[in-house]
């Protein structure tokens, strides 16, 4: 009898024990399951993460790959004038005897043309652009800036052929009737078109240069009793000089590479210009005109690729200059 409750008790205890065990194991297994679900999700999102990083890095590597292939390919193709055809480099740079049919590839005329139109553009467009940049940063009331900024964006958006077409239909006839130029085509027409085209670049970059200056400079200058104009010329211009240099360099880069707008108004005569209104040619215009007719593998084609390589080298040099100017700022 006494055994019975004991056993009962035992079995009862046992029952409780079993129940706890079941509950525990049940809880444990469910817990394990949710845990494994969570860890599965985590593993999945970690895998996604790894894939994403690699794909994104691939896109970044592509940028390096693109510029590397471009430089190598153009360097290879652009030096064939000197390596395959044995045309001396100094003659390419400094001789003006250009007759590719007879293996003469002196490109001094085109190099001069490029330098002159670019110089014209930066001398006219540079100061103008910086002035409007100062205006936007220091003078313009909010409403004026609201009109001016979209206008500048539109000037950027207008395609270069449309600038060329405007030059052709508006500027060239004007120059023909009002200057000594018999045709209106020439250095001045190309320079004016280019100076308008680089304006947006110079304006927005120089505005940024002025805006990045600390307010304390302006307050200090004003507190000393200077007028706004004295503050601009005496304090802000010198302080923003590296930023303004960058603005001008990138304006030059834009002008040097422009092809079709220049080609439409420069007159396309392969001789040194005999005056500011005289027709001439530049590196880009010569490539545009002659590349289509140059047989593949010919001396003429090689010379044109050498001109392209020269343009690329100038562009790279300008980028290094920009880096240098910005490093000076610290």
């Amino acid at each position: 009898m006494s055994d019975v409750p004991k056993t009962d008790n035992r079995s009862h205890r046992q029952g409780i024990g079993e129940a706890t065990q079941v509950v525990a194991s049940l809880w444990f297994s469910v817990g394990k399951e949710t845990l494994s679900v969570i860890s599965l999700q985590a593993a999945k999102s970690h895998r996604n993460e790894r894939i994403a990083v690699n794909v994104l890095r691939g896109a970044a590597v592509f940028v390096i790959f693109a510029i590397a292939v471009l430089i190598v390919y153009l360097a290879f193709e652009g030096t064939k004038t000197f390596s395959v055809d044995k045309f001396p480099v100094w003659k390419f740079l400094f001789s003006s005897d250009y007759d590719p049919g007879n293996n003469l590839g002196g490109s001094a005329v085109f190099i001069t043309g490029t330098l002159l139109v670019t110089g014209f553009a930066i001398v006219v467009g540079g100061p103008f652009g910086i002035a409007v940049g100062v205006f936007l940063s220091e003078v313009a009331p909010a409403r004026m800036a609201q009109i001016l900024k979209p206008a500048i964006e539109l000037l950027v958006g207008i395609p270069s052929v449309v600038y060329g077409w405007l030059g052709l239909t508006l500027l060239v006839p004007f120059l023909r009737t009002h200057t000594s130029s018999p045709s209106g085509f020439g250095l001045a027409a190309a320079g004016i078109v280019l100076s308008i085209m680089i304006l947006p670049t110079v304006i927005s970059l120089s505005e940024d240069a002025f805006r990045s200056l600390p307010v304390s400079l302006r307050e200090g200058s004003m507190a000393l009793g200077s007028t706004r104009w004295q503050m601009i010329t005496g304090v802000l211009l010198p302080s923003a000089s590296s930023g303004l240099t960058v603005a001008l360099i990138l304006g030059i880069a834009r002008a040097i590479g422009e092809a079709l707008a220049v080609q439409m108004v420069i007159g396309n005569s392969s001789q040194f210009p005999r005056g500011i209104f005289a027709p001439t040619a530049s590196l880009t215009t010569e490539i545009v005109i002659d590349m289509g007719g140059a047989p593949q593998g010919s001396f003429q084609e090689h010379v044109l690729f050498s001109m392209a390589l020269l343009l690329l080298l100038i562009a790279m040099a300008l980028i290094l200059l920009v880096r240098f100017a910005l490093r000076g700022r610290g």
């Binding site: 940028v63 693109a66 590479g257 422009e258 092809a259 392209a308 690329l312 562009a315 300008l318």
Partner: peptide, 12 residues
């Protein structure tokens, strides 16, 4: 590289 690519003239 991106900056360099950005300055390559469009004709080049």
């Amino acid at each position: 590289s991106a900056e360099s690519l950005a300055t390559v003239p469009s004709i080049v």
